[in-house]
């Protein structure tokens, strides 16, 4: 996974960068499946690895076959200073976070056991993710489709020929 990611950044040809990004996305979905998030893994494999790669490729075919060899600018001094500093600051926060795989982490304690225990009585669906997404949080999901609709309209307006 990290190889694919490094390749997506290092490689000079834009087309191979996009294809490597797709494979990175697919490996990421495998990582999520191994962490117990099968629904997320499915969505990432379909939407992330599939749809995003197709969108990138459509843009590349539509735009710049000549322009795809990239030159890489040397990073400026400010970025060289700020990025390690930002990394150290972020890592300094690690002490306050729950450990990896901790069953008593705050995210797993407050309301989430209630969802796991009650959801079958409430919704008659064994898949808890589905019952939360489509039943408890169904309004969120509905408005999410509005977001996607807006994005579709924006794409259609931008890609009009006689604009």
């Amino acid at each position: 996974m990290s190889l694919a990611r490094a390749g997506a950044i290092m490689v000079k040809d834009l087309m191979s960068a996009v294809l490597l990004l797709g494979s990175y996305s697919f490996f990421l979905s495998l990582v999520w499946a191994s962490q117990g998030a099968v629904d997320v893994a499915f969505v990432e494999a379909v939407v992330g690895a599939g749809l995003a790669t197709v969108l990138f490729l459509l843009t590349l075919f539509g735009t710049a076959p000549k322009d795809t060899r990239l030159q890489r600018p040397p990073p400026s001094l400010i970025t060289l200073i700020i990025f390690p500093l930002l990394g150290v600051l972020l890592l300094y926060a690690a002490k306050d976070l729950p450990g990896f795989g901790d069953p008593n982490s705050p995210a797993s304690l407050h309301i989430s056991p209630t969802y796991l225990e009650q959801s079958y009585q409430d919704t008659l669906t064994p898949n808890v993710v589905t019952s939360v997404l489509m039943d408890y949080r169904s309004l969120d999901t509905m408005i999410e489709t509005v977001v996607i609709f807006t994005a579709g309209i924006a794409c259609a307006l931008l890609l009009r020929r006689q604009a």
Partner: peptide
């Protein structure tokens, strides 16, 4: 069972991110 609530959140986030 793994905590389902972040999964739901990220499902929405992936789709909106690709949009």
């Amino acid at each position: 069972y793994a905590n389902p609530l972040p999964h739901v959140l990220t499902l929405t986030a992936i789709v909106v991110g690709v949009a």
